[in-house]
Write a protein that binds this DNA or RNA. Structure first.
Length: 764
DNA sequence: TTAGGGTTAG
C-alpha cells in the first residue's frame, strides 16, 4: 500500500479538513550498417588472357541483334577447345553492363545444348549479379535478378548467393537476405557467408535468428571451431548488445557463451574485459561473476583485469566473502593479482571503515615475496589508507603514512594525498592544520586543484567561517583556480545556514554566470536550506525550476519538502508531495515516515504516530533513532513520562537502537519539567555510562530542573561536569544561572564557572 | 584501484 493511500486512510485523524524497457537498440536500423564485403574485383578489371574469353568478347562487341549465333555456338558450346563455367563468368563480366549481360544470359539459356548442366547459366548469372551490384539502383535490380533466378530455375552459385546476402544486408533488405540464406544448402554455407549473415542479423536486431544461426554454426563446429569467426561474431556482437540498454535473451546469450567455452572458443582478453565491464556497469554483477567463473573453469585465458572489475563491484556492495572467494580462485589458477587488485581490496576495506584490516593487508603486501617478486605499494594504495584513516579521525596515523610514503622511492604524495588529509583536518575542525598542509603541498611542489579549494571552502563553511571561505576563494581565483558547482554548493549551504538567503540565491545564479551549470545537488541544497528556514514558497519555486532544468527530485529532496510543509502545518501541500513522490516512482523511506510521525507526535495525534510506526515496519522499513525520538517527544509533550520511558527502554532492548543525545535531552527535559530531577540526573549518569556525550541543551535542562527544586549543591556539581565535558555555556545557561545564583548570593560561583574553575569542591 | 557539495526528531 502506498504511503499516500495510507495517509489518506489516516487522514480523518490527522486533519478532517484536508482532502486528500525495449530490446536491441544497439542493433536497430538506425545504426550505420557496416559495409558489406567488397565484391571481388571483376575480371573486367583484370586482363583476360584466355583466347576463348577474348574471342567471345570480340564477337559480342557487336550490337545484340547482330551477334553471330553460329560462331558463338561454336566457340561456347562445341567443346573444342574445351569451355568451362568460369569462361562464362569472365565473358559476362567483360561485357561491362548488366543489361547487355542479360541478353547474353538469354543467348546462353536458349542455345546451350547442355540442358542438364546449368553451370554455364549459374556462372553467367553470378557475373550479372556482380555487374548489377556496381550500377545505380542496384537494390531493386538485385531483387529483380533474384526473382528471375527463381522464375527461370537458374541455380545460383554460392558466390552469387553470398553477394545477394551481402548487398541485401547493406540495403537493409533483411527479409530478402534471410530468404536467400534459407535457399542455400547447409553444407554449402561457408565461413564467410555465416560471418556476413550473422553479423547482419545482429546489426538489424534479429537477435533470435542470429542466435539460431550461431547455434547451427556450433553444430557444424568441426568446420568452424578452429576458426575465429564464432569468437569474432559472438563476442563483438555481445559487447554491442550490452552497450544498448535493452534487455532480454540473456539465457540464450549465456547459453551460446557457454557452448563456445565448451568448444574451447574463448573471448580474447580485451573482449572478456569489456564484456565484464559492461555487465558490471549494467548492474549485472551476478551474471558477470558467473561468466567469468565459466571462463576460468573452462580453462580460458583470464588475466587480473576482469577479476579487478568484479572485485570493485563486490567491494562497492561490501561483499567481502565473495571478494575473498574470487581471490582464492585467482590464486588457484595462478592469476597473479596486480597492484590494482590489492588497491581495490585495501580501498574496499577502508571505505567500509575496516581500516585496521586494510592496514594489515598493507603490512603483508609490503613484506610479500612471490617468486622473487616483492610488492611495492603505489601512491593509490597510500592514498586509500590515508583517506581511510582520516575518515575515522585517526589523523596522526594518516600524517605518519604521509611521511612514510615520502621516504619510499617513486611514491611521492600527490594532490589526492594532500586533499585526503586536508579534508580529515577540516572535518575535525582543525582548519589551521589543514592550511598548514595546504602551504606544505605548495612547498613540496604539489599544485592544489579545485578539490583542494572545495575541501577548504567546505571546511571553513561548516565551522561558520563563511566570510573567510569567500575571501579564500577570491585569492584562489587570482591564482587561477576557478570554483566549480561543488564550491558554490558548499557556500550556498553555508549562507542558508546563516539565514542569508539573498546571498545564497545570488550564488546560485552565479553558478551559470561562471560558466558552470547547477547540478541536481546544487538545486537540492538550496531547496533544503529554504525548507529548513520554512520558506516553502521559495522552496517550491526552486523545485519547479529544477524540474524545468531536466532534473528530478530524489527521496532526500522530497523528504526535505515534505518535512518543511509538515513543520509549517501545510498538510495539503505535504500530501501532494507524497503523491507526486510515489507517482514519480520514488519510494518513501524511513525519513519520509519520520516527517509524518514527527508532525503527528508534535500535534498530539499519538494514535496516528503509533500507526505510522507500525506502517513503516509493515513496509519493510526499519524505524530509526529519529522515529523513536519523535514518538518519545510526543509523549513528553503530553507529560506522559511513563510511556516515553517505556518506549525508551523498548528501543534499547527490543529494537537494539542506541539512544543518542537528542533522545536523552528530550527525556531529561521532560523529567525536570515534572520535578523528577533525581530521575533526570540518573538518566544523565546512564548517558555517560553508555558513552553518549551530553551537550549544552542537556545541561540547560538540568539547570532548569535543579533551580525549580532548588538543589543548589547538585547544580554546582553539574556545573563542574559541564566543564569536564568541554560543554560551553550559552546565553540560556547564563540566563538560568545568573537569575538563580544572584538570588541566592552565589554570583562568585558563577564567576568562577565562567572562568573555568571548579565550583562544587568549595561548597559547604 | 585514490580526494570535495544536499535529508528527518530536541
Amino acid at each position: 500500500m502506498s504511503l499516500f493511500r495510507s495517509l489518506h486512510s489516516l487522514k480523518p485523524l490527522l486533519n478532517p479538513a484536508v482532502d486528500l524497457s525495449p530490446f536491441l537498440r544497439c542493433f536497430s536500423t538506425d545504426h550505420e550498417p557496416e559495409p558489406a564485403a567488397e565484391p571481388e574485383p571483376g575480371p573486367s578489371h583484370q586482363p583476360h588472357n584466355d583466347p576463348i574469353v577474348t574471342q567471345a568478347l570480340d564477337l559480342l562487341q557487336a550490337p545484340e541483334n547482330s551477334w553471330d549465333p553460329a560462331e558463338l555456338n561454336r566457340l561456347l558450346f562445341s567443346n573444342s577447345p574445351t569451355t568451362v563455367p568460369t569462361h562464362f563468368s569472365k565473358i559476362t563480366l567483360g561485357l561491362g553492363a548488366s543489361g547487355k549481360a542479360l541478353k547474353f544470359l538469354d543467348f546462353v539459356q536458349s542455345h546451350s545444348p547442355q540442358k542438364d548442366a546449368p553451370a554455364f547459366l549459374s556462372h553467367t548469372f553470378q557475373s550479372i549479379v556482380k555487374l548489377a551490384s556496381r550500377e545505380p539502383g542496384w537494390e531493386k535490380a538485385l531483387l529483380e535478378l533474384y526473382k528471375m533466378s527463381k522464375q527461370r530455375d537458374i541455380p545460383l552459385t554460392i558466390n552469387a548467393l553470398t553477394l545477394l546476402v551481402s548487398f541485401f544486408g547493406r540495403a537493409g533488405m533483411v527479409d530478402e537476405a534471410v530468404s536467400v540464406f534459407d535457399d542455400i544448402d547447409r553444407n554449402a554455407r561457408d565461413r564467410h557467408l555465416y560471418e556476413l549473415f550473422v553479423g547482419m542479423l545482429f546489426r538489424y536486431g534479429r537477435f533470435e535468428s542470429a542466435l539460431k544461426v550461431l547455434d547451427e554454426m556450433l553444430e557444424l563446429h568441426s568446420r568452424f571451431a578452429a576458426s575465429d569467426i564464432p569468437r569474432k561474431i559472438f563476442f563483438s556482437a555481445l559487447l554491442r548488445r550490452l552497450q544498448g540498454d535493452g534487455g532480454g535473451h540473456e539465457d540464450e546469450i549465456d547459453g551460446i557463451f557457454v557452448k563456445l567455452l565448451e568448444l574451447g572458443v574463448f573471448p580474447d582478453s580485451i573482449a572478456l574485459l569489456n564484456i565484464i565491464k559492461k555487465l558490471c556497469r549494467n548492474g549485472e554483477i551476478g551474471r558477470a561473476w558467473d561468466l567469468l567463473l565459466r571462463v576460468i573453469q573452462s580453462g580460458g585465458p583470464v588475466e587480473a583485469a576482469p577479476c579487478n572489475v568484479i572485485l570493485v563491484e563486490l567491494g562497492k556492495r561490501l561483499e567481502f566473502n565473495r571478494m575473498r572467494e574470487l581471490m582464492i580462485k585467482m590464486k588457484e589458477i595462478s592469476i597473479q593479482p596486480d597492484v590494482v587488485t590489492l588497491g581495490i581490496l585495501i580501498n574496499s576495506l577502508c571505505k567500509s571503515r575496516r581500516v585496521d584490516d586494510a592496514l594489515e593487508v598493507f603490512e603483508r603486501i609490503c613484506t610479500m615475496h612471490d617468486d622473487g617478486f616483492s610488492w611495492e605499494p603505489d601512491a593509490v594504495i597510500y592514498n586509500c589508507l590515508i583517506d581511510g584513516l582520516c575518515k575515522v579521525g585517526r589523523l596522526d596515523e594518516a600524517a605518519e603514512l604521509l611521511r612514510k610514503m615520502t621516504l619510499q622511492d617513486g611514491c611521492m604524495p600527490n594532490v589526492i594525498t594532500y586533499n585526503c588529509l586536508i579534508d580529515g583536518y577540516c572535518k575535525c575542525c582543525e582548519i589551521d592544520k589543514a592550511f598548514q598542509l595546504f602551504d606544505q603541498m605548495s612547498e613540496e611542489g604539489v599544485q592544489p586543484n579545485v578539490v583542494t579549494v572545495n575541501t577548504l571552502v567546505d571546511g571553513m563553511c561548516k565551522f561558520g567561517r563563511v566570510n573567510s571561505a569567500v575571501e579564500f576563494l577570491k585569492e584562489m581565483k587570482v591564482r587561477g583556480l576557478s570554483p566549480n558547482v561543488r564550491t558554490y554548493t558548499s557556500l550556498i549551504k553555508a549562507f542558508c545556514n546563516a539565514n542569508n538567503f539573498e546571498k545564497a540565491m545570488e550564488l546560485f545564479q552565479e553558478i551559470s554566470r561562471s560558466g558552470c551549470s547547477p547540478d541536481s545537488i546544487a538545486y537540492y541544497t538550496l531547496i533544503s536550506g529554504l525548507c529548513t528556514a520554512g520558506r516553502m514558497d521559495d522552496a517550491s519555486s526552486v523545485a519547479t525550476e529544477l524540474k524545468a532544468a531536466g532534473f528530478s527530485l530524489d527521496a532526500v529532496c522530497y523528504n526535505n519538502l515534505i518535512g518543511g510543509f509538515c513543520r509549517k502545518n501545510k498538510l495539503e501541500e505535504a500530501y501532494e508531495m507524497v503523491k507526486e513522490m510515489e507517482s514519480s516512482g520514488v519510494k518513501p523511506d524511513a525519513v519520509t515516515y519520520n516527517c509524518w510521525l514527527s508532525y503527528n507526535a508534535k500535534t498530539g495525534n499519538l494514535t496516528t504516530a503509533n500507526k505510522l510506526m507500525r506502517l513503516m515496519i509493515e513496509q519493510g522499513l526499519v524505524p530509526t533513532v529519529v522515529s523513536y525520538g519523535a514518538l518519545i517527544h510526543g509523549y513528553c509533550l503530553e507529560n506522559n513520562v511513563e510511556e516515553a520511558m517505556k518506549i525508551f527502554r523498548e528501543m534499547n532492548s527490543v529494537s537494539k537502537i542506541p539512544p543518542n543525545t537528542v533522545i536523552y535531552n528530550i527525556l531529561i527535559e521532560c523529567l525536570c519539567r515534572n520535578d523528577e530531577v533525581d530521575s533526570a540526573c540518573s538518566l544523565m549518569d546512564d548517558m555517560m555510562e553508555k558513552g553518549v556525550r551530553p551537550n549544552t541543551t542537556t545541561f540547560n535542562a538540568l539547570f532548569r530542573g535543579l533551580r525549580q527544586t532548588n538543589c543548589l549543591k547538585k547544580a554546582f556539581e553539574v556545573m563542574d561536569r559541564m566543564h569536564e565535558h568541554a560543554c560551553k555555556p550559552d546565553y540560556v545557561t547564563m540566563e538560568i544561572l545568573m537569575e538563580w545564583l544572584s538570588a541566592v548570593g552565589e554570583v562568585g560561583k558563577l564567576k568562577s564557572f565562567v572562568q573555568g574553575y571548579e565550583v562544587a569542591a568549595f561548597t559547604a
